[in-house]
Design a protein around this nucleic acid. Structure first.
Length: 348
DNA sequence: AACACGGGGCG
DNA sequence: CGCCCAGTGTT
């Protein structure tokens, strides 16, 4: 049996009874879909009922003051949904004689109606073969077909949409779309799904590979942190330089590097000089040269280090100074090692 | 492509 | 109590 037929069979036997279940009126389906964006059924249901009671038709909603719409929405979160809901109602009443668009493209033009919601309304109300891809669908498809593409990448979004279209039952789209979402919500849940009793277990790729809990992949919002490093490439009268060990937790713990001045953003030479105090006797500085014009960007998985190397010649004798012939004995980050290599080339 | 936008449920 | 959830609009 095809994947779609299995979903349809499961849905026929397991669907919950919900206030909007079986509904085909675009106003009601639209209202339910907007409320259910990023919201669990249990939380959204009372809001659906009170909105329907306060605004039985799209005209009632369009003619209400925004204050009242927001007040009814209070507690549901993501309040732009309420403002967009109101705006779309005004559009439907003002520009469309109170009749909702009856295809994906038209629906998509309404404020607050994106790809998912347009597909949901088109399929549920008008039985148009548009696949829905919400969080439930991502999870079900990723597991059943063993898709490892991150659902958060633009490539993943495209891939899942086309996969969803490939495997859908276009002849029963109204039931199928609701079925796959319901299946994700009830059976193929994010944490500890009951695979033992799943009717799709025999053909589920992730289950057979023991990777249920790894799918779907969400490229971790490895938020890249940007840092600005200023390394002091010191040189004293005897030609020695200075390296320091990084003792704190974080990147490169216990590795060695040049004396470091970290700044919020790119730093000027004047600003740098004013911070030289703790490192050496500023009065004995002979010459400062910015070694690289544009910062070297060293990329770690979660940090981008915008690095400037400053060559600082001093008349001091550096305590603990290291002769250049010895620097290669110290464990240093690649960023520093690359600089060593460059210096060697430059000075050779 | 990255970010902002809320609340509730869960371990 | 920190982590997870995952549509749309904006920049």
């Amino acid at each position: 049996m095809s994947f779609a037929k299995k979903i349809l069979t499961w849905y026929a036997a397991n669907k919950r009874s919900l206030p909007w279940r079986g509904e085909r009126d675009p106003y009601r389906i639209w209202l339910s879909e907007i409320i259910l964006q990023q919201t669990r059924v249990a939380q959204g249901t009372p809001y659906y009922l009170k909105f329907l009671s306060a605004f039985p038709t799209v005209y009632d909603l369009a003619n209400a003051p925004e204050e009242r719409v927001l007040k009814l929405w209070q507690g549901l979160g993501y309040y732009s949904r309420a403002r967009n809901l109101h705006s779309a109602a005004k559009t439907v009443v003002g520009d469309m004689e109170g009749v909702f668009p009856s295809d994906y493209k038209g629906l998509r033009k309404l404020k607050g109606v994106g790809d998912y919601t347009a597909s949901a309304i088109a399929s549920i109300c008008f039985n148009l073969p548009e696949p829905v891809v919400d969080g439930n669908v991502y999870r079900v498809l990723a597991r059943y077909f063993g898709v490892e593409l991150p659902i958060t990448s633009s490539e993943g979004i495209k891939y899942f949409k086309s996969l969803a279209r490939e495997v859908m039952d276009g002849d029963n789209i109204r039931e199928y779309n609701q079925g796959i979402m319901e299946f994700g919500a009830i059976q193929c849940v994010p944490k500890s799904p009951n695979c033992t009793r799943c009717p799709l277990k025999a053909s589920c790729t992730a289950l057979q590979q023991g990777r249920i809990l790894e799918l779907p992949v969400k490229a971790k919002k490895a938020k890249v942190r940007h840092r600005h490093f200023n390394y002091l490439y010191l040189e004293d009268v005897s030609g020695k330089t200075l390296l320091q060990q990084r003792t704190k937790k974080g990147i490169w713990q216990n590795l060695w590097e040049f004396p470091l001045i970290e700044s919020d953003k790119n730093i000027t030479e004047e600003a740098l000089v004013s911070q030289l105090d703790g490192f050496l006797d500023a009065g004995k500085v002979q010459e400062i040269t910015r070694y690289n014009d544009s910062p070297v960007v060293h990329k770690l998985s979660h940090q981008h280090l915008h690095t400037v190397f400053w060559m600082v010649k001093t008349d001091e004798i550096l305590e603990n100074g290291i002769p250049w012939s010895d620097v290669h004995k110290y464990p240093v980050p690649v960023l520093i090692a690359d600089f060593f290599a460059k210096i060697r080339t430059f000075e050779a």
